Simulated assay, not measured.
Amino acid sequence: MRRFLALVLLAVGFALVGAPAASAHDVLESTSPADRTTVDRLPQAVTLTFSDDPLALGTQILVKGPSGNVAHGDPTIEGRVVHQQLSAQAPAGDYVVTYRVTSSDGHPISGTFSFHATVGLDGSTATQGAPVPAQQPGSPDVAAAQQSSFVPVMLTIAGVVIVLLIGAVVWIGSRRRDAAATPGTADTPDTADTKNRG
């Protein structure tokens, strides 16, 4: 029984140690245009580079500027890089890119970044406006994404503990049944007569 409990504690310890690694999901490494920068001309596409290959399922990118969302078509993925084409009618001005990408481990990654385009794809021009604040790590959307990554880890740990406890109950029950089925050590009549004669 002591050996089994030791194995239970060891398995729980491994699960707790592995939790930080499991929650270390893919991260956004860079963007083009870079966050809070000014480009001479609005590019035909914005790109996001992640630490690992993201999944196409659930990936969505919005590029909002003076005329609204100018994202054209669905985003495309090439290895670790996600491309989002822009409309040819996109004007100059301030832009905020909002992304939601499914990481390689199946968890969502979301956030925003911003930039300013002096010349739009439609040929229009604009002066530099006030910097558009990008989403900070403590913002609600980022906090929600981190929480959604943490919950599956805790459910996995809870599942491991439950399975081990069920195994402990089954093991103890089988030991008791084996003990009950083992013949007793009471003296048989022949043994009793021999002791009396002795």
Rank of each mutant, 00 (worst) to 15 (best):
M1L: 15
M1S: 08
R2P: 01
R2V: 10
F4A: 11
L5M: 07
L5P: 00
L5Y: 10
L9T: 13
L10K: 04
A11P: 02
G13V: 13
A15K: 00
L16N: 05
V17Q: 00
G18W: 12
G18K: 03
A19S: 07
A19G: 08
P20H: 04
S23E: 12
H25F: 05
H25T: 15
D26I: 06
V27M: 03
L28F: 02
S32K: 14
D35Q: 03
D35C: 05
T38G: 02
T38C: 01
V39W: 00
D40T: 09
R41D: 00
R41S: 10
L42I: 01
P43V: 02
Q44R: 13
A45G: 04
L48P: 03
S51Y: 09
S51V: 10
A56D: 15
A56C: 08
G58Y: 01
G58M: 04
Q60G: 03
Q60M: 07
I61C: 10
G65W: 02
S67I: 12
G68A: 08
V70Q: 07
A71D: 10
H72I: 02
H72T: 07
G73M: 10
G73I: 12
P75H: 11
T76A: 13
E78H: 13
G79D: 02
V81Q: 12
H83L: 14
Q85F: 07
L86E: 06
L86P: 07
A88L: 13
A88E: 09
A88G: 10
A88K: 09
Q89M: 03
Q89P: 00
P91E: 11
Y99H: 14
T102A: 08
S103Q: 12
S104M: 09
S104I: 06
G106N: 13
H107Q: 15
P108F: 11
I109W: 11
S110K: 15
S110A: 15
T112C: 06
F113T: 04
F115A: 06
F115T: 04
H116E: 11
H116C: 09
T118I: 07
V119W: 03
G120Q: 12
D122L: 02
D122K: 08
S124A: 07
T127L: 04
Q128N: 01
G129V: 11
G129K: 07
A130Y: 03
P131E: 06
P133A: 05
P133W: 06
P133V: 02
Q135W: 02
Q135F: 01
Q135P: 01
Q136G: 06
S139A: 14
S139D: 14
A145I: 07
Q147C: 00
S148I: 04
P152T: 02
P152K: 05
V153R: 15
M154V: 13
T156R: 15
T156E: 11
A158C: 02
I162M: 08
V163Q: 05
G167A: 15
V169R: 10
V169F: 14
V169W: 12
V169A: 15
V170R: 13
R176H: 13
A180T: 07
A180P: 03
A181Q: 11
A181C: 03
T182F: 08
T182H: 11
P183K: 06
A186M: 04
D187T: 08
T188F: 05
T188P: 00
D190I: 06
T191A: 09
A192T: 10
D193P: 00
T194V: 10
T194L: 12
K195D: 07
N196H: 08
G198C: 01
